[in-house]
Design a protein around this nucleic acid. Structure first.
Lengths: 244, 244
DNA sequence: AAATAATGTGTCGTTTGTACATATTCTATA
DNA sequence: TATAGAATATGTACAAACGACACATTATTT
């Protein structure tokens, strides 16, 4: 068990025996990445006996002196070493019995990172990237959290330029399409996909070509800078809404 | 100060002096209703000195033995007497300093009720319906919570049949259109609106007419039963998502 | 009986969505 | 070096949805 996990469990034990009014609050991060044409999620072997053999999301208790958003950001930093990440709060899970050690309410965030850019310490074999598609069961209610976050991601990508956080800065339209297909679990028509992306006007043509591909190289693009939104800064809640 | 509010404050005081790890968790309900062609929200006079003169949303601490969703449902029941309500979790607000009495993280829900159907005890003059449009400032961060919930509601109504929870069972298309206009703060073209509603295929023509209107009466409709979704039961997280 | 006010409906031009085929360019292999 | 293979790049035609817009009808009120 890692030092962090030990601390976490110790804190939980303590909490579960405190005052009647005491409820612990944690955050859980669904950290998505894209690799080998698959959407993957970062999981860790559960440290609880009840769930031995199962994996869980990365989470931790929220500290009294840190904002909720900051807690999720801290987890991401601790785990991936990344400073500048896309983070979005999705839902708060508050069933009485969702945590075997006591009452813990958890707020779920999802995060999108470029798998090439992180500094994961994957050397200990507790931390792994798992293809989202193959995941059947997780510790706690984490499968349900994962599903909820994946659904939110799917809703987001249809309208907002967020998937670019999963790609390197320069990418081809084929890579982009394959990414959408991986996230949505559908096949897309190439011509229609390109038309749709063109209309959004999110991309800059770099006038460069792919290299090291075993076929005709495609053009490279990057996201227009004004569409970047990465850090965990709280979204303003008064963004305008499209109307009927 | 009401008995409930007194209890709430007492609980907070207690909590704010507890262990380092202690964070209180509450729920706040944005209870919407529709009346006099305006979208309204139920507010109560704040019981804290810091916010004297200001109104706040209806909220309470979550009990150790109740689910998060159940807590919001309980508040609705206590306040409105309603059993069968539309409730949706929106966002969790967790800034360190959002509550002056201590660390309180709150999960916001919005609710839609038929203003004619509730059993509000509005006799004490602490509880009031306020037109959403006129609200400038609320206690705590409740203005920001209200804005967030209103935005979520606006997103929802464009795609999902939820506004019917704000209307009586039978309604005319004019009433429905006025409701959309109130929620979205826009003017809609009558013919296009009716076309759009017709396509959704949400309504049943009751072959009845409005009564007691000071002009030519319109036809009455009701929502098809299969589109009703009212109770606070947690949404399943594996609903299919439309694809590009 | 006439004026008023709200209901109810259709068309046309524009945009968006979707299905679908061919020419081009680079790589790999014979 | 010539040919085959594989992926890039692009346009058209039909269907559905969107948005602007005008007129006849039916109650009520005066």
């Amino acid at each position: 068990m890692s030092k962090e996990q030990a601390l976490k469990t110790a804190a939980l034990e303590k909490i579960s025996h405190l005052d009647y009014f005491n409820i612990a609050i944690s955050v859980d991060c669904v950290i998505f990445a894209y690799d080998s044409k698959e959407l993957k999620v970062l999981l860790i072997k559960s440290d609880l006996e009840e769930f031995s053999g199962l994996y869980s999301l990365l989470g931790d208790l929220v500290r009294t002196d840190e904002d909720l958003d900051a807690a999720s950001y801290r987890i991401l930093q601790e785990r991936t070493g990344l400073e500048d990440v896309y983070l979005e709060q999705v839902h708060t899970f508050g069933s009485i019995s969702r945590h075997p050690s006591g009452r813990v309410i958890t707020t779920a965030y999802y995060s999108l990172i470029d798998v090439k850019h992180h500094n994961l310490r994957l050397n200990n074999n507790e931390l792994h990237w798992h293809p989202v598609k193959g995941i059947k069961k997780l510790a706690f209610d984490h499968k349900s959290i994962l599903d909820t976050c994946l659904n939110r991601l799917r809703e987001q990508v249809l309208e907002h330029p967020v998937v670019f956080n999963l790609l390197p800065e320069k990418f081809s339209l084929r890579e982009l399409q394959e990414l959408y297909e991986a996230i949505l679990s559908v096949d897309l028509d190439r011509r229609n996909f390109r038309k749709k992306i063109a209309i959004k006007d999110w991309l800059v043509d770099l006038n460069e070509m792919e290299e090291d591909v075993p076929h005709r190289p495609g053009k490279l693009y990057k996201l227009k800078p004004e569409f970047r939104r990465k850090t965990y800064r709280k979204k303003t809640s008064d963004t305008p809404v499209p109307v009927a």
